[in-house]
C-alpha cells in the first residue's frame, strides 16, 4: 500500500511539474466550456420560445443540460485518455528507469496500481475543472445533484477502465507516440463498435455492442446505478490491469 502511494505520488508530481497536467486541464476546460455554453444556450433559447408561445413544456436541467453534457464528456475523454497514459511505462522503458523500479523491493502490482491510480487522479482533476461550470446551474436553477453524482461516478469508472487499457499499452513500447496512438485507436474502436447494433441484430453485433465501452455509460448518464454496467466497467478495469501485470512480467523475461 505504502509503496503504491510512493509511485502514485511520483507520477502525480511528474504530471504537475511538467506542462502536461495544465495542458490537459486547459484543453478539457475549453472544450467542455464550449459544450456547456452551447447546451445551456439552447436550453435558454427553448425556454424563451416556450414563454413567447404561451405553451409550457416541462423543462428539466438534469435531462436537457447535464445528461447530454456528461454523455459528451464520456466521448471527449476517449481523446484525452491516451495523453494521460502514454507516458506511464513507455518513458520508464526508454530512459532505463524501469530497471530501478523492477529491482526495488516493490511488487509489479504495486507499481502498476500506483501509476494507474495517478492516471485516474489526473483524469479526476480534469473533470473537477470542467465541473466548476455546473456551479452556474446550481446558482440559477435547481438541478438534482444525485443523478449528476451517479453520472460522474460512471465517467470515472469508464475512464478507469480505459486508463487501465492505456497503461497496458504503454508497457508494450518504449515510444510514447506509439503508445498514445495505439491507445487512441483502441479507445475509438471501443466507442464506434456500438454502431453496428443500429442496423444489425445478429449475435456478433450484439457482442460488439455489449463490448462497446460508451454504451454502458447511458444508464449512469440517466442517473441510474445499474449493477450490470458497474460490473462491465469493473471487468474492463480488471482485464486492463491483469494484462499490464502480465506484460510487466514478460518484460522481465524478454528485457
Amino acid at each position: 500500500m505504502g509503496n503504491m502511494i510512493v509511485i502514485c505520488q511520483k507520477e502525480m508530481k511528474s504530471y504537475f511539474s511538467s506542462p502536461v497536467a495544465y495542458l490537459l486541464m486547459t484543453m478539457f476546460a475549453v472544450i467542455f466550456g464550449f459544450f456547456f455554453w452551447n447546451v445551456v444556450g439552447y436550453f435558454v433559447f427553448m425556454g424563451m420560445q416556450q414563454q413567447m408561445g404561451g405553451r409550457s413544456f416541462p423543462m428539466n436541467l438534469n435531462e436537457q443540460v447535464i445528461r447530454p453534457l456528461l454523455s459528451n464528456v464520456s466521448v471527449i475523454g476517449l481523446f484525452l485518455i491516451p495523453l494521460i497514459t502514454m507516458r506511464l511505462f513507455a518513458e520508464e522503458k526508454r530512459s532505463g528507469t524501469i530497471e530501478l523500479l523492477l529491482t526495488s523491493p516493490i511488487s509489479d502490482v504495486q507499481i502498476l496500481l500506483g501509476k494507474w491510480l495517478a492516471a485516474i487522479l489526473m483524469y479526476g482533476a480534469m473533470l473537477l475543472v470542467a465541473g466548476l461550470n455546473f456551479i452556474f446551474l446550481f446558482a440559477y436553477g435547481q438541478p438534482d445533484w444525485r443523478p449528476m453524482l451517479v453520472a460522474f461516478l460512471g465517467l470515472m469508472l469508464q475512464a478507469a477502465g480505459l486508463l487501465a487499457i492505456g497503461t497496458f499499452i504503454s508497457t508494450l513500447t518504449k515510444n510514447q507516440i506509439i503508445a498514445g496512438a495505439t491507445t487512441f485507436g483502441v479507445c475509438l474502436l471501443l466507442w464506434i463498435m456500438e454502431w453496428v447494433s443500429g442496423y444489425e441484430t445478429a449475435t456478433w453485433a450484439k457482442v460488439l455492442a455489449y463490448l462497446s465501452i460508451v454504451s454502458h455509460f447511458e444508464s449512469f448518464a440517466k442517473g441510474v446505478l445499474d449493477s450490470k454496467d458497474i460490473i462491465f466497467y469493473l471487468s474492463v478495469i480488471f482485464f486492463g490491469l491483469f494484462l499490464t501485470a502480465r506484460s510487466l512480467e514478460s518484460l522481465r523475461w524478454r528485457a
Binding site: 509503496n3 511520483k10 530512459s95 530501478l100 529491482t103 523491493p105 516493490i106
Partner: peptide, 29 residues
C-alpha cells in the same frame, strides 16, 4: 532486492526531478 544496490549502465534518473527529490523517492522505494 532489499540487500542489493544497483547502478545500471545508464543511471536510472528522472530528468524532471531535483537531486534531493529523486534520492528521496528512491529511498522511499
Amino acid at each position: 532486492k532489499r540487500r542489493i544496490g544497483y547502478l545500471p549502465e545508464t543511471p536510472p534518473l528522472y530528468p524532471d526531478m531535483e537531486v534531493r527529490e529523486y534520492l528521496h523517492f528512491v529511498g522511499q522505494l
